[in-house]
């Protein structure tokens, strides 16, 4: 019993998601060291909240990236913005409409994902270009319906997204719940096996009876639905939908997948790493912030650290 525990402990560094969490702990330590341990709890709670948003979009992106080379969803920021704008406009600050508003957001996600997939399937457009050009359309729709107004979310919803349950932020709980569901889907369901098979060898998967087109459709749609869900919560969290609210989530959604140890070439993903990557992305920024660095230096450091992590983590065991 004891021995197997020790074995498991030494086994940890070999897990693909280990390094993301280890680096997060380091970044957390470096930040709290500067403040002599003060504000540690606040930082942790902020990290858990913001990481939840990144983790939810990251999970959607992870499923898409698992499908293999060329598969990436570039429409995530636009889908987030569009869903948030339409949902908040629909709710118009009224408490009774909170759940129907969520329905509107999810419908936007379904529609956007379905449209993305239709472009990929019917017009045979490479996914990068399909999601990119579709995102232009979503962005225009959002601009058109938003008209520069900032509609406030219903009070209840704002309180819920900023509140916490026994000390754990509500958003963290939602993010963890979605992560657990995703883990079950990816690791324990036939659909997860199909997604991985698609990414490892699409032809072999099709020949062995995997309904490849169903797999691809469901994957793109779920990515868009998770993006719209994040948009709905993020807009309520930050007091309204803004047209640029999704902008930074394009990089984040891809970065958390790669930092978390999933293969960018597809076919091999892991869910815990998404949370590790999401925590790390937030903690790096807050660490650089607390060292009093300006916006420019902070951006440079963030970029360098991402490249450094990717360069250190990959490059082994892949044939040329």
């Amino acid at each position: 019993m004891d021995k197997s525990f020790v074995l498991k402990l030494t086994d940890l560094p070999r897990r693909p998601w280990f390094w993301a969490f280890a680096a997060s702990v380091l970044a957390f330590g470096a930040t709290t060291y500067l403040t002599d341990g003060r504000g540690g709890a606040g930082l942790l709670s902020a990290a858990l909240t913001f990481a939840a948003f990144s983790a939810i979009v990251g999970l959607g992106q992870m499923f898409v990236i698992t499908l293999g080379p060329g598969n990436v969803d570039l429409s995530i920021p636009a889908t987030m913005t569009l869903a948030a704008t339409l949902a908040l406009k629909f709710m118009h600050g009224e408490t009774a409409l909170v759940l129907p508003g969520l329905g509107v957001a999810l419908l936007v996600g379904l529609g956007a994902g379905g449209f993305n997939y239709a472009l990929i399937r019917l017009l045979r457009i490479p996914p990068i270009i399909a999601t990119l050009s579709a995102s232009f359309l979503y962005q225009s729709l959002a601009i058109w319906s938003n008209r520069g107004l900032r509609i406030k979310p219903p009070e209840v919803l704002a309180d819920f997204t900023t509140g916490s349950f026994f000390g754990i932020p509500n958003m963290t709980l939602i993010g963890l719940l979605i992560a657990v569901l995703s883990w079950i889907v990816l690791e324990r369901s036939i659909f997860g096996r199909w997604v991985s098979a698609f990414g490892q060898n699409t032809r072999a998967a099709r020949l062995s009876g995997v309904p490849v087109e169903v797999v691809r459709a469901v994957t793109y749609i779920s990515s868009a639905v998770l993006a719209s869900l994040t948009g709905y919560f993020l807009a309520s969290f930050s007091g309204g939908a803004a047209l640029n609210m999704g902008a930074e989530y394009l990089l984040i959604s891809i970065a958390v997948v790669v930092i978390g140890g999933s293969s960018i070439a597809g076919g091999n993903s892991n869910v815990p790493g998404i949370w590790g990557g999401a925590l790390l992305m937030f903690l790096i920024v807050s660490m650089l912030n607390s060292y009093g660095l300006g916006a420019g230096v902070r951006l440079i450091m963030t970029g360098t650290i991402i490249i450094g992590i990717v360069a250190a983590a990959s490059g082994k065991g892949r044939a040329v």
Partner: peptide
Amino acid sequence: HIRQLPAIVVTLGMSFVWGGLAVL
């Protein structure tokens, strides 16, 4: 090429670096 890195991630990271330099 040497480290067999995904270009999409490296260039995404570089976009932060160039952006930061430009802001400076």
